[in-house]
Amino acid sequence: MITQPVIAKLEQSQLRSDLPEFRVGDTVRVHYKIVEGEKERVQVFQGIVLKRHRAGVRSTFTVRKVSFGIGVERIFLQHSPRIDKVEVVSKGVVRRGRLFYLRELAGKAARVRDEKDQ
């Protein structure tokens, strides 16, 4: 689909380019700004990137972690100003674009090979 040029221009100004390059399978730490009443604080969410949805301003990425034995997934809007920063903890080696199979796995089986171990 060709984006209408005027809309493309509007969306261009919304994009942020300060996030590091990361891919599906990487382990990332997402620093997310949370507003509680008056105060604003930063919450960190660390996990494996399951999916990246690349769609201009509407781009999102899904991060999965296992918290107290329960799998938690969060979908972040990639260009949201609420994202303080994203750190890439480790690069993973995966053979597909969507890691939904990790949901079925637990413990040792749910790991992703690290790039450094190659």
């Binding site: 209408q4 809309i7 509007l10 969306e11 919304q14 700004k33 301003v57 260009h79 100003p81 609420r82």
Partner: peptide, 12 residues
Amino acid sequence: KLGMTQFFDEKG
């Protein structure tokens, strides 16, 4: 009508 889009407001 040119189409639809989205943007982030000051609250994010």
